[in-house]
Design a protein around this nucleic acid. Structure first.
Length: 503
RNA sequence: GCCCCCAUCGUCUAGUGGACCAGGACACAGGCCUUUCAAGCCUGCGACAGGGGUUCGAAUCCCCUUGGGGGCACCA
């Protein structure tokens, strides 16, 4: 099996949107495919018709592309092993289910839901292990014929064999795993509606699609024995199994759910990849981050490229223990990646976020002169793209600012009269400048502070609140330049007036 | 309840019998820088779950306990 070409797959069920944990599974598979020069296959496991979510497929495709995990075969990409939707592969499952029945490895079970419930009830009452009692496995040919003649609905169940003893299989991450046959269920392979369950469909497809390595979530470990038995029953060469550790909530309590996760501080954090995209995380940061959960480049390098990860990726090096989602580290890493971006690049990525935050169209934002020069001012101040808008919104107010709380304009340890004077003198100083650039403005304002007997920080605090409306802003001198003399003077005057009215 | 998996700083991790009085990163704390806030730099805090073995020697191997996680569907 070592000389087979590497073919790995990501096989999501379109019953919801792409979960951050699933995204990591996809990334690991993709990384391994690229590492070994093999193929990465996307297969859609849509056998549960009741739980389908309309636009889930689009979400998977968009999410995978965003992350950089382009699949070689699957929906849209095509390939020689299609179709890649299980809903279009029903004949295969029926054929192989029948094959199992014909060869004595599976059987038709005619038990009704009522009987199953009854059995369960009795087992519970007797404090026995619950599970199917294999009633139909031992039906006589006559009884069987009777059910068939009556047209009774049936499911196909795996006939676990032998009933005692144990089987050991190898997991590439955890080593050998042994399970007792006596604990195994005669699991349903084909449902009464003729559709396969996961167990059958996955094994048939993995074999037919010549999947070499099954890298999937830890949650499947318990049912892995079923897969092993199925491969044995079919007489097929099994793939390499590798069960990825689950990702826990950031507080370490329980696996990250599908709906919401609890942060270390008790607040909830996003669980869907689309939410992280919407929050302004960069795909390169997300990929880097995800690769660092359960795996690592060399134990000390935190920031690395996909190429580095591909070169070093090794299934056996994956950490088998569950990991709490290190959300804080994602935020930090994203900041690192943002700071590494060129100004033009960051500007392009910021455009839609700031436009949305300010409430105008992307085209309108692109036409404004303020955003591009402001980019270098905020680059090292944001950790996600969506943090930019609230930091820059004052740039996109065309006239003067509203000061709902004029008291906030008053400088620390200053009177209102003093503040008004600072405002007026600052305006006068800036109005008199022959050249309205950073150096001139800084020199003039510093001189003014001296003149007024104020520390520069005191003066700038007052000017800052007047000009930007906030106590925390991008560097003031550059901000003043971008805003332009006219708007700055107007705001200074308006602020002075607002302060004066406080007296 | 039963079965399976896992166990190094709060968190992500390095460590595969001696180079480990356990390294890196995030977070946190202090300092420097400084027009606010960041960023950056420096320093600090901080872990081998417990108990038995094996061995000259154990974070590393074995066993038990404890703790955490996952699974027990005609869902995947």
């Amino acid at each position: 099996m070592s000389n087979k070409p590497t073919r790995v797959r990501f096989a999501p069920s379109p019953t919801g949107y792409l979960h951050i944990g699933s995204a990591r599974s996809a990334l690991f598979n993709w990384l391994y495919a690229r590492h070994s020069g093999g193929k990465f296959i996307l297969r859609i496991e849509d056998t549960d018709q009741k739980r389908l979510v309309e636009d889930a497929l689009d979400d998977f495709a968009a999410g995978l592309r965003w992350l950089g995990c382009q699949w070689d075969e699957g929906p849209e990409a095509g390939g020689d092993f299609g179709p890649y939707f299980q809903s279009q592969r029903l004949p295969h499952y029926r054929q192989w289910a029948n094959w199992l029945v014909d060869h004595g490895h599976a059987y038709r079970c005619y038990c009704t839901e009522e009987r199953l419930a009854q059995v369960r009830e009795q087992q519970t009452a007797a404090k026995e292990q619950t599970g199917y009692d294999r009633h139909c496995r031992y039906l006589t040919p006559e009884q069987r014929a009777q059910h068939e003649a009556a047209g009774a609905p049936f499911v196909v169940r795996l006939a676990v064999e032998p009933l005692d003893g144990s089987t050991t299989f190898h997991d590439a991450i955890r080593g050998d795993i042994t399970f007792e046959h006596s604990l195994l269920q005669d699991a349903v392979l084909l449902k009464s509606d003729g559709w396969p369950t996961y167990h059958l469909a996955a094994v048939v497809d993995d074999h037919l699609m010549e999947i070499s390595h099954i890298m999937r979530s830890d949650e499947w470990l318990s049912s892995a024995p079923l897969g092993v038995l199925l491969y044995q029953a079919f007489g097929w060469e099994p793939p390499v199994w590798a069960h990825l550790p689950v990702i826990l909530n950031p507080n370490g309590k329980g696996k990250m759910s599908k709906r919401h996760a609890v942060g270390a501080d008790g607040k909830s954090i996003p669980v869907l990849l689309k939410e992280y995209i919407a929050d302004g995380y960069l795909p390169e940061a997300m990929a880097n981050f995800l690769a660092n959960v359960g795996w690592n480049l060399d134990g000390s390098t935190e920031v690395f490229t996909p190429e580095q990860a591909i070169a070093a990726f090794d299934i056996a090096a994956i950490n088998p223990s569950p990991a709490a989602f290190p959300y804080d580290k994602l935020v930090w890493l994203n900041g690192v990646y943002i700071r590494q971006l060129g100004d033009d690049d960051l500007y392009q990525r910021l455009l839609p976020f700031v436009a949305a935050g300010v409430g105008i169209s992307v085209e309108a934002m692109a036409a404004r002169p303020e955003l591009r020069p402001a980019v270098p001012l905020i680059k090292e101040r944001i950790k996600t793209l969506d943090e930019a808008a609230p930091m820059l919104d004052f740039f996109f107010v065309d006239g003067v600012l509203a000061y709902p709380d004029p008291q906030a304009l008053v400088g620390e340890k200053m009177s209102t009269a003093q503040t008004a004077e600072v405002l007026q003198r600052s305006a006068a100083t800036l109005a008199s400048l022959s050249s309205f650039d950073h150096e001139s403005i800084e020199a003039a304002l510093r001189a003014l502070a001296d003149d007024l007997g104020l520390k520069i920080r005191q003066l700038l605090h007052v000017v800052r609140v007047a000009v930007t409306g906030t106590k925390v802003s991008p560097p003031l001198f550059e901000t003043i330049v971008i805003l332009g003399r006219e708007r700055v003077l107007a705001r200074l005057a308006a602020a002075a007036e607002a302060v004066a009215s406080q007296q």
